[in-house]
Design a protein around this nucleic acid. Structure first.
Lengths: 143, 143
DNA sequence: CAAAATTACGGGTATATACCCGCATCATGA
DNA sequence: TCATGATGCGGGTATATACCCGTAATTTTG
């Protein structure tokens, strides 16, 4: 019985949780990763890709590709900003409706997952999310 | 301040931890994902892809692709098994040496990460890894 | 024993992610 | 004002992962 790799445990737990949220969100037609982006874009209103990347803590190019998928599904729209280098992102109507459909589903996934974990684990998990605080420029707000 | 998504927190924590382990393992020329596979293959001695997939809890095709990378780096060798449908995997000498180089590095990554988390979180995290127990056929052994 | 079901694998495709590089565009300072 | 440097973005490529499908081999069963 080799000692468990903490990193591997975390990765597996993340994969498990992702599958759980994805399954619950399925009726809305989006997955947890995309839900997260939509929610952040909704909050931000109208952001550049780089700014959003800072907010969500993703690489800019990663985010760009993810956004292209969302755009193809007509969930978001992008257009050049005042600064012609920027592309500015915002939700479409369809994106807003999708987000509204997804929100109670997310709520339910969140609650059932929290119940599965139990209160102790919950507290810990919230703390875990702050590991990244150093890396990320993003700060203060929670999600 | 929107409520944090537990799934996203977990995913971010996993990403952070992965970066940590990868950085520490870098001198050995492998990442934590590959280290994990090498270690399991070493334990198993000589397994088929499907069996190994069961052990590590990965999709067979995912594992197949990962193994191809390891094979290209001459860390493992594959050959057809007695059952001609199977491909059987084992470490090469280079793979074994790499694993030996990597082990103390992993140890160090594990210790520093554990220290970063603190004992409470540690206990929790070990429990988290068992979330998958249901999904996975894999059982009993730890890593 | 031959037909049918099962199993093992690879390939295609998709998601989610990162890094590096090049090309625009903007901002600055000589 | 205009060269130089910084910034924003996309593309190329790579890793890590999954699902589905087709093909080949084995096992089961009638």
């Amino acid at each position: 019985m080799t000692e468990r790799c903490l990193c591997t445990s975390l990765r597996q737990a993340a994969a498990f949780s992702t599958a759980h949220y994805d399954a619950v969100l399925a009726p809305a037609g989006i997955k947890i990763t995309m839900f997260r982006l939509l929610r952040r874009i909704d909050e931000a209103g109208c952001v550049s890709i780089s700014d959003l990347a800072g907010i969500v803590g993703l690489d800019r190019s990663t985010l760009g590709r993810n956004l292209r998928v969302l755009e193809k599904q007509d969930l978001i729209a992008t257009r050049p900003g005042q600064d012609q280098r920027e592309r500015v992102v915002e939700l479409t109507d369809h994106g807003r409706r999708t987000l509204e459909t997804a929100l109670p589903l997310w709520r339910s996934a969140q609650d059932s997952f929290a119940a599965l974990l139990g209160p102790d684990v919950l507290t810990i998990l919230e703390g875990l999310a702050d590991l990244n605080k150093n890396q990320e420029t993003y700060e203060g707000d929670r999600a």
